[in-house]
Design a binder for these strands. Structure first.
Lengths: 91, 91
DNA sequence: TAGATATATTTAAATATTTGAATGTTTCGA
DNA sequence: TCGAAACATTCAAATATTTAAATATATCTA
């Protein structure tokens, strides 16, 4: 994982709404639907869409279309790679 | 570690210059002097000062004054706590 | 003590991010 | 097929971040 990627993932994680989204996976279940995220956050639908896009663009979330709905799952592999890079910082 | 703190640390990590600073600790030694960071980055002194402040404010770096100089060390404990929070995201 | 060195702060400009209104696209169901 | 539902995109406004010039502060040294 190069520095550009570390930067992008860090930026995706640097917002309270996006952190809240990621934490829902642990609380609820292994996947989240777009509509559930809209209910979770106190934001309009376009804003939520924007935040989800940041997480998907950083590869922290994987999305899968199910008819009109959109299902998200946490990309544990990318999260692990990011964590590994942070561990590398330690001497 | 609360979400505000996770947000702040993530934001501190979301910049190429600041990532480069943190990586120098691994490359060189256990501490870095402010002047060395100024040499490392292709930025003016006030800009470097700003980036170092972001890292210190996020508690990722600890600073210690030595006369006119300023010595920085990596705060491994905070880094570990942050990593632990990221691991918690995994279900 | 005066001047130099190391770092911080203030200020302003450029750029990026966040947000929501309006609107677009896709898909479902009647 | 038509209207509704789910989600995305565009656009503009508000806010935040990054950067450097100018300047300030603290400390060392001659």
């Amino acid at each position: 994982m190069d520095n550009k990627k570390i930067e992008k993932i860090s930026r995706a994680l640097s917002d309270a709404n996006r952190i809240a989204i990621l934490q829902q996976f642990k609380k609820r279940k292994d996947c989240l639907y777009c509509a559930e995220v809209n209910d979770l956050l106190d934001l309009t639908q376009p804003s939520v869409s924007h935040h989800l896009k940041q997480l998907v663009d950083a590869d922290l979330l994987l999305s899968q279309k199910e008819g009109r709905n959109l299902k998200y799952v946490l990309n544990q592999q990318v999260l692990d790679e990011y964590i590994a890079c942070l561990n590398e910082l330690k001497s």
